[in-house]
Amino acid sequence: MLAGATRSKALYRVLGTLLGAVASVILVPNPASAPELLTVVIAHWVTVCLS
């Protein structure tokens, strides 16, 4: 009965995890030597994700 909803939720969680992993691999290495810039980049990423 709830199998469809459970699978859908699981799929969204897996896709979200993969998207977050790809974003961190792309975004973090470049400004890693500048902590202030890294903080700004992460803050913008979180803003985009919450919008």
Results as ranks from 00 to 15, higher is better:
Val22Trp: 13
Thr47Phe: 09
Gly20Lys: 14
His44Met: 15
Leu19Val: 14
Val28Asn: 07
Val41Met: 03
Gly20Ser: 15
Thr6Glu: 10
Met1Phe: 07
Arg13His: 06
Leu37Thr: 13
Ser33Asn: 06
Ala21Asn: 10
Leu50Glu: 12
Leu2Cys: 12
Val22Gly: 08
Ser24Ile: 05
Gly20Tyr: 09
Pro35Leu: 08
Thr17Glu: 07
Leu2Asn: 13
Val14Thr: 07
Glu36Leu: 13
Ala3Gly: 04
Val41Lys: 01
His44Trp: 13
Arg13Trp: 05
Ala23Lys: 03
Val40Cys: 03
Pro31His: 07
Ala3Lys: 10
Pro35Ser: 06
Ala32Pro: 01
Leu15Ala: 04
Ala21Glu: 02
Thr47Gly: 05
Pro29Thr: 01
Leu50Ala: 13
Cys49Thr: 02
Val14Pro: 00
Ser33Met: 04
Pro29Asp: 00
Glu36Gln: 07
Val25Ser: 08
Ala10Lys: 13
Asn30Asp: 01
Ser51Val: 12
Val28Trp: 07
Leu27Phe: 03
Glu36Arg: 06
Ala34Lys: 15
Ala32Lys: 03
Gly20Asp: 13
Cys49Arg: 01
Val46Tyr: 09
Thr47Lys: 10
Val14Gly: 00
Ser33Cys: 02
Lys9Ala: 13
Trp45Lys: 01
Ser24Lys: 09
Leu19Glu: 04
Gly16Phe: 06
Leu18Tyr: 09
Gly4Ala: 14
Thr39Ala: 14
Glu36Val: 15
Pro31Gly: 11
Ala32Arg: 05
Ala43Val: 12
Ala32Trp: 04
Leu19Phe: 15
Leu11Asp: 02
Ala10Asp: 13
Gly4Asn: 15
Val25Trp: 10
Leu37Tyr: 07
Leu19Gly: 02
Ile26Tyr: 09
Ala21Gly: 10
Thr17Met: 07
Val41His: 01
Leu38Gln: 07
Val41Asp: 00
Leu11Glu: 04
Ala3Leu: 08
Ala3Asp: 11
Val46Phe: 10
Arg13Leu: 08
Leu2Phe: 12
Pro29Phe: 05
Leu37Glu: 11
Val48Glu: 02
Thr17Arg: 13
Arg13Glu: 07
Leu50His: 04
Val25Pro: 01
Gly4Lys: 14
Thr39Gln: 03
Val22Tyr: 11
Leu11Cys: 04
Ala23Tyr: 08
Leu37Ala: 12
Pro31Phe: 12
Tyr12Ile: 10
Asn30Gly: 04
Leu27Ala: 00
Ala21Phe: 15
Glu36Gly: 03
Thr6Leu: 14
Val40Phe: 12
Pro31Trp: 10
Ala23Thr: 06
Leu27Asn: 00
Glu36Trp: 08
Ser33Leu: 06
Glu36Phe: 11
Tyr12Phe: 10
Ser8Asp: 00
Ala21Arg: 11
Ala32Gly: 01
Arg13Gly: 00
Thr17Val: 05
Leu15Asn: 01
Thr39Asn: 04
Gly4His: 14
Pro35Trp: 07
His44Val: 15
Glu36Tyr: 08
Gly20Asn: 15
Thr17Phe: 08
Val46Cys: 06
